[in-house]
Design a protein around this nucleic acid. Sequence first.
DNA 1: GTCTATAGTACGATAGAC
DNA 2: GTCTATCGTACTATAGAC
Lengths: 189, 189
Amino acid sequence: MVRWRPGARERLQAAALERFAEHGFDGTTVAEIAEAAGLTERTFFRYFADKREVIFAGQEQFEQVFLSGLEGAGDDHPMQAVAAALDAAATNFFPDRGWSRTRQAVIDKDPGLQERELLKLASLATAMTEALRRRGVEETAASLTAQSGVAVFRVAFGAWIADGETRSLADIQRAVLAELRGLVGDTGE
Amino acid sequence: MVRWRPGARERLQAAALERFAEHGFDGTTVAEIAEAAGLTERTFFRYFADKREVIFAGQEQFEQVFLSGLEGAGDDHPMQAVAAALDAAATNFFPDRGWSRTRQAVIDKDPGLQERELLKLASLATAMTEALRRRGVEETAASLTAQSGVAVFRVAFGAWIADGETRSLADIQRAVLAELRGLVGDTGE
DNA sequence: GTCTATAGTACGATAGAC
DNA sequence: GTCTATCGTACTATAGAC
């Protein structure tokens, strides 16, 4: 007989997503999530700094995939390094489109979760900015490139989980990036 | 003898910013802010949905200036319309660099306020996306253009409030936009 | 694991302005 | 009388302190 079953973190995350999807984020208390996972409220907060974090765990890994993609890129134009990072992220991080759809539907219904998502994406942009700086890219350029990359990811991800979409995330990202080039590049000043 | 002084909202905002700057966001309670404004906690929440909102009031006006700038633009390339919106916003909305610095310093110290700021900027991007759609711009292009515009604003605003900076926000924005064009446009695929 | 401060909600009471 | 700004109280949940 074990004193506690392993995988507490994962059980909490699964229970949370399930209940959020059914009763909404505000309609679910931390106590309910903990109980469904066979734990106490106190334990929940040992794993997650706040209630929202249970939806965003694994962020470090997510960021890491982008950064590895960046490092792996050659000594190219910064925007090409970001393109490589997007490719690396798409092929290494999103296995299950259905799960992504459920999770995003939960987030899209709650402003508090949207805030947290934006903070995570901003943190990703900051990390990419710093990585570009380390490659010798100047401050403003690094920041703009990183933010453009995140914008491409956001738009592409939204398309990827749309109903009926069958292309891979990597394919969509390449298409979106090409479109961005056309939009921003030749404005015929 | 009047029962209540006018300008309750403004008094609350001023008291809040002052105290946040001195004791931090977490180090200030709603009750303290209300008391400093000669009101009660209950009244605070009549004006602001939550504690963070007191820092972000006037957002509708801010958004409106961007949208007016967009509408005012001719039948140009979408990115040029966004450039016009940025110009309009810079010339009509930021009178006091010192106040902006204080406010931003408060925000930059608190992740909760950063989240809210990102949500507001995302809401601005959404509004600009919809305005572009109304001009006949296709969905993905509208979203990318709007997000690029907001990215330019963020980077330029950060530079504008930096120590020693003397250029106008409008000037900085034009420079940043030009840099973005160079970065995204000619990646020599 | 218990205790507590704070944020935020719900419903209601009061009282001046008109 | 209606409208609107304020305040009172009681309550729940989050989150941090002990």
